[in-house]
Amino acid sequence: MPCSGNDSSRIAVCSAWLGGVGERETEAITIPNAPRSDLNPKSVSAFSLSFSTPWATVPLCSPNTTLKKSNTTAATHQEIVSLYQRFCQLDRNGGGFVSADELLSIPEVAVNPLSQRLMGILNGLNFKEFVAFLSAFSPRATQQQKIEFIFRVYDSDCNGKVTFSDILDILRDLTGQFISEQQREQVLTRVLEESGYAKDSTLGISDFTKVLGNTGIKMDVEVPID
């Protein structure tokens, strides 16, 4: 449903980022929260759309006065500009997309335990997709969007299901050689069982919402404005 229907509005959002900010308010951009069907690999573009919402639509959602509204818009516009500068800086060969190699040349990224996994998502993104990726970290993104993002990191084959081995892969990245493979499996099996899941059961996005949604997830990254 959202895959085909939202294409035009996505372009509108994008032009609003990069071009005139003021015009954006006249355009009725209503983007539904990504339904779970978005998580299949065919609708990656629609998926990125749903993630792009916090950056672009917040001014529209804000029920405050016009003055307040324009302030927020300016800040968002500033953030997009900053992100664009950053993107150009990272894209050293100027190809219009960032490669895993370029990103791993940032030492802080290279030492991150999940860097290899994230590179699978980040490799070859253009600017629009780059912003969409980062928008899950916007302070204005909803809890649901953040959970969906985490789900996507787990769901390596993008089939909307997270299996035992998916979780084990992430756990392996996080613990490295400091827990043996056998012990890792034991730990995960036990923890899953205690939460009422079997080893061979798969977790959907609703399970993630249930497990992670109770207490707030802190996943906010401020875009530095120079």
Partner: peptide, 16 residues
Amino acid sequence: LLDISPTLTEAAGAIV
């Protein structure tokens, strides 16, 4: 185990 948000935040912070 499932909440990998601190590590992800760190990575995204470094990318930004």
